[in-house]
Structures are given as structure tokens and as C-alpha cells.
Amino acid sequence: MTPTDEAADSVLLRTEGRAAYLTLNRPKALNALSHTMVRRVDEALTTWEHDPAVETVVITGAGGRGLCAGGDIRSIHADARSGGDASAAFWRDEYRLNARIARYPKPYVALMDGIVMGGGVGISAHGSVRIVTERSKVAMPETGIGFVPDVGGTYLLALAPGELGTHLGLTGVPMGAADALLCGLADHFVPADALPALAADLAAGAVSDVLPRHVREAPEGRLAADREWIDHCYAADTVEEIVDRLLAAGTPAAKEAAETILAKSPTALKVTLAALRRARDLGPLERVLEQEYRVSCAALSAPDLVEGIRAQVIEKDRAPRWSPATLAEVGEADVARFFAPLGARELSLADNAPQEVPW
């Protein structure tokens, strides 16, 4: 199969009436993003941006299990093991696409049904109209594979109310519809069985006219009721203190969060906390993506990324051997190296921040 054939098969494109439809089409891999797919999406957005017949772009995932489970981490694992540069090249284009989606001049409607994780969040949650359903599972689970939230994930999580983003970034736990709405990663709830009608209606009508016919109230979530202990515990300055506060909080949910955190990569946890705190002060999405690019490139040469993917995805023994193995062994210098400038390899994005859009 040629690269052109692969792109055509893995990302399906069509236009109908006033809308253009983009379907991620790797259902056996939960629509995980390859470099070829990222380029295909970017090329389509360029075409549709300049096509006056296209008023709305709709993105969905094939297979019925989810929009996108993230990047192709098997490829990242192979690249990291070999010391290659394919992952850095992939992230460069992926993060540019994330920034482009955030400032796309036409309504970008993301149907975030089912699993939406990692790169799936990047290709959807920066859009102007983000739809979740009762089946949505939205997450940035990178600390579980020795990695750090990227694709603008630290930007989105840093904007979540209180310390909800810190909780989600460290634990990697998935959000349902109501929690995604609360945290600002989604805009509207539409029942899953109504998505085909919503998508079809966008071919004939404007987003502002179509949405009210399909939007409903989301089922109750979990995070709103947990805000008190989450905001207190995760306001601590270090991961160690966060864990101590969670264990002392006296609630089963807080204890469960502490246990979840302690199973993740100690290095990834400390870098994630630093990245989230820095993201709050960096300004627009582009600046945060530039920081994430430094962090991601540094992770390629750190042992935990290869080990985490091995344990969770390749061999699936679910028993990663992190190095260092404990939070106490991860020093300030170990964290600082993830944020070191890359010199000529820096990702430099446009200065214009994402624009507010009225959809």
C-alpha cells in the first residue's frame, strides 16, 4: 500500500451540502493517529477552509467504539527503542494541527463519542463545537505509560476549574460526559443514537440552528461532588504532598486516587505537575504546545516511556518497572531536563492565539 492509499483508507473525506465530513478510519486500532493521518487531516482542513461551499467541518471515528484512542504508541515505542526521530517529526505536525484546529475559521464539530484519549483529545477538544455522549470516555492517560499529557492537554487541563485538571492529569482517569463538560473539554451533550441525525442535519443547516434540536442535559457526573477534596489535595506543591493529602482525606475516592497515582511513572508524574503549573502562566495554546514538544522529545530518551508502553501495550503484563522507581528518587534536575530548550529543533508556532468563535 502506498502512502497515498494509506491516507485515503485511514481518513475518509466527503462533502454533502454545507458540511464536510472527516472520519478517522482505523477501527481495529481504535482510530489511533498515524503521521499519515495527521497530514491527511491537515490537507483536508486546508482545502475546506478555502472552499466557500463548506460551512462546517464534522469529525467522527469509525467502528462505533470511539473517536480516537490517541497516537500510534506502538510506533512511538519502536522509534524510542531505536533512537529514531520519527516520533519527534510526528509530534511536530500533530501539534501544529492541534493549534490549527483551535483557530480554524469555520465551525469544527467534533463528535466525541466513545473513547477519546490522548491524541484523540487533541484532534477534538480544541474544536469550536465539542459533542459528548453517554458513551464518552475522555482522558489524558499518559502518566500510565511513562509519558506526559501533550497535544495541548496540559493547556486544557490547566484551564479546568480548581484543581480538577491536576487530578485528571496525574491519575489519567477518564471523564464521562458531564465531567468533560464541567472541565471545559466539551460543550454539549447529545445522546449517541442522535449523532447520525445531528451530522446529517449539518449538511442542510447552520450549527446554531441544528444544535438546539439535538442537545440534551447530560447524566450526572462524579467530579462536581468531589471538588472539595480534589481542590484541597491537589493544590499541594509536590506530588508527594498531593499523595499524602489524598491518603489523609478520609474518603474512599481520594484513597483510590492516591493508589492510582502511585502506580504511575514517578518521573512522568513530577513532570506532569510541573507542566500543568507552567501552562497556567504561558498564555495561548501555541506557547503550551511548544513546551509540550520539549517535554515529549525529552521523554523519548527517558527509560519510562519504552517501559510503560511495553508493560501496558506490547507485552501487557501491567507491571512496569519504573526508573527511578519512587517519587523520592526523582530530583529537581530530573524534572528540569524535560523543559530544556531544544535549540534548532524547537517547535515554533504562530504568535496568534486561538480566536473566540460564536458556535
Rank of each mutant, 00 (worst) to 15 (best):
W91N: 11
P324G: 04
L111A: 05
S208K: 12
T171M: 00
D150R: 03
P266R: 01
L342Y: 00
D237N: 14
P27R: 00
A180R: 08
E356L: 09
C233Y: 04
L33I: 01
L111E: 08
W229V: 09
L305H: 05
V41R: 11
S128T: 14
L22P: 10
L170F: 09
T143D: 00
L223F: 00
C297P: 02
L223D: 10
P196E: 11
A275M: 05
K137Y: 11
S82N: 12
P303A: 06
R277V: 00
P196M: 10
Q312I: 10
R280W: 04
L22D: 13
L22M: 14
C233G: 06
E256C: 06
E292V: 08
T326K: 02
P212W: 00
S34T: 15
R74I: 10
E217P: 04
L327H: 02
V306C: 06
L12H: 09
I123V: 12
R74F: 12
L13E: 12
R39T: 01
D226R: 15
H126E: 05
V210S: 12
M112P: 00
V295W: 01
T47A: 15
S10G: 10
D79P: 02
A44I: 00
R40E: 10
L111W: 03
H214R: 02
V207I: 04
R227N: 07
T251L: 06
A177E: 01
A350E: 12
